[in-house]
Amino acid sequence: MSYVFIAMTILLTVYGQITLKWQVGLNPGATIDGLNPRAIITLLLNPWVISAFAAAFGASLCWMAAISRMPLSKAYPFTALSFPLVAVLTVLLFRESFDSHKIAGTALIILGVIVLSRSGA
């Protein structure tokens, strides 16, 4: 069951990141560097952004459930899987680049998770 909670943590985290990227992209004035208070408030009241924050909260609850059932040193490396998932989804959804450096880095992350998941704990 702990792996289900880890998977939910990852999926909710990825959902939140993709949703925030999508909504911030639709509201370019709502960034900290632009500091347009009206745009930021509008963004914070956006139902999609609220759902991303709720997903982050849900991910935290799932994470607490996961680490209560499994050693942190064994569970934590799996959270790195959010990086490759976000990278692939941003290529598909936002047409971001995925060059050889990103491919190599993603492969290293996945390899690292595989190696760490095989360690005893």
Rank of each mutant, 00 (worst) to 15 (best):
I41C: 14
V14A: 10
S100K: 01
L35N: 15
G29Q: 12
R38D: 15
V115E: 07
I40N: 05
L44P: 06
L93G: 05
T19S: 14
T106V: 06
D33T: 13
N27V: 07
V49E: 02
I114C: 09
V88S: 05
S100H: 03
G105Q: 04
F78Y: 07
A55G: 03
L92G: 06
A80E: 12
S51H: 09
S117F: 03
S60M: 09
P47V: 07
L93Y: 15
I103W: 12
L72T: 15
V88T: 09
K21G: 10
G34H: 14
N36V: 12
T106A: 08
W22I: 08
K21T: 11
Q23S: 04
L89N: 08
G112S: 03
M70V: 06
T31E: 13
A66L: 03
A107S: 08
I67S: 04
R118Q: 10
A66T: 06
P84M: 14
T13D: 02
A55Y: 02
P47R: 12
I110P: 04
F94R: 00
S68M: 04
L92K: 03
S97Y: 10
L81C: 10
I110D: 06
I50H: 12
I109E: 04
V49F: 04
L93N: 06
L72E: 11
H101L: 00
A87W: 09
I40R: 01
L20F: 10
L92Y: 06
F83I: 07
L35R: 15
S97P: 10
T106Y: 12
L44Y: 15
A104W: 12
A54M: 13
W63I: 02
Y76F: 12
Y76D: 07
G16E: 03
E96Q: 06
G25D: 15
I40Q: 04
Q17C: 05
A30W: 00
A56P: 01
T31Q: 10
L85Q: 13
R95F: 14
L26W: 09
N36I: 09
F53Q: 09
W63C: 01
P37Q: 03
I114Q: 07
V115G: 03
N36Y: 11
W48R: 13
A52V: 03
D33H: 12
V14F: 02
K74M: 08
N36T: 09
R95L: 05
L45A: 12
C62P: 03
N36K: 08
G29S: 11
L61R: 09
G58I: 07
C62F: 07
L116Q: 13
F94P: 02
S73I: 09
A107R: 00
L92N: 04
S117G: 05
I67P: 01
L20W: 08
N27T: 11
S51W: 05
V49M: 03
F78I: 04
L93K: 08
P37K: 04
A54S: 10
M64P: 08
V49G: 02
R69S: 09
I50R: 15
F98D: 04
Q17P: 00
